[in-house]
Amino acid sequence: MYTILQGFGSAFRLIIALDPELLKIIWLSLKVSGAALVLAIALGLPLGALLALKRLPLRGLILSLINTGMGLPPVVVGLFVYLLLSRSGPLGFLELLYTPGAMIFAQFILAFPIVTSLSHTAIVNVNPIIRQAAQVLGANPLQEALTVIREARYGIMTGGIAGLGRVTAEVGAVIMVGGNIAGYTRVMTTTIALETDKGNFDLAIALGIILLGLSLLINLAFRAVQRMGRSGSGVVLWD
C-alpha cells in the first residue's frame, strides 16, 4: 500500500535527480506566470497610477470594478477566456485556445486587478507633500507623476508579488484554456491535479513541494518588501 512517506521519498528523488519532465513543467509554469505578471504590471501600474493621480470621470466605478476583479473565481475567468478564444468567439481567429498564450491571457486577467488595485493604493497613500516638493523643484507633470510613483515603489512591488502569488497557485483557469497537454501546456498545478487523478503521487508530491517552496519564497519576498517600505530602508534608487 502506498504511503505518504513513500510518496515523499520518491518525490525527493525526482527533485534531486532533476527529472527532465519535472524541470520542463516547472520552466513552463514560470514562463506562463512570469509573462502574465509582466503584462499585468505593464498595464496595471499605469492604470493604477492614472486613477491615483488624475481626477478621471467614473473613477469610483472603475475602482469598484477592479476591486471586484481581485476576487474573481479562476474557473469563471477560465470560462470567460474559453468563450473569447473558442473558434466561434470574438478572438477565435487568434487560434490561442489550448496554447500557453491562452494560459498567459487567463493568468493576466487574474493578476491585473491585483496589480492595478495595489498600485493605486500605494500611489494614493504617498504623502501629498512629495508631489508638492516635486512641483516646487520644477518638475513637469510627467516628472511629478514619476516621482510619486517612485515613492510608492514598495507598495507597487507588493502588488506585483501578490499578483505572482495568485497566478502561480491557480489551476482552474489554466486547465480550462490550456487543456493540460503533456509537454505543451502542462504546468505545475494542472499536473498535480492530473497525476493525483491517475494515482501517480510521486510527481504530484514533487511538484507540490516545489510549489510550496515557491509560495514560501513569494511570501518571504512579500514580507521583506513590506518591511523595507515601513523602515524606509532597502535599495537606494537612481544613483
Binding site: 507633500i129 516646487v136 523643484l137 516621482t147 515613492e151 537606494v236 534608487l237 537612481w238
Partner: peptide, 29 residues
Amino acid sequence: KRRITLLLPGVGVFNTSVFNNVAYGLKIR
C-alpha cells in the same frame, strides 16, 4: 516656475539618498 522655488514647512524628503534628493531639481532640468 523653474526660476523660483519654495522650501515647504514639511520639506517632503524623497525616499532616496541625500545626494539624490539634492540632485533632483538638477536632474529633471
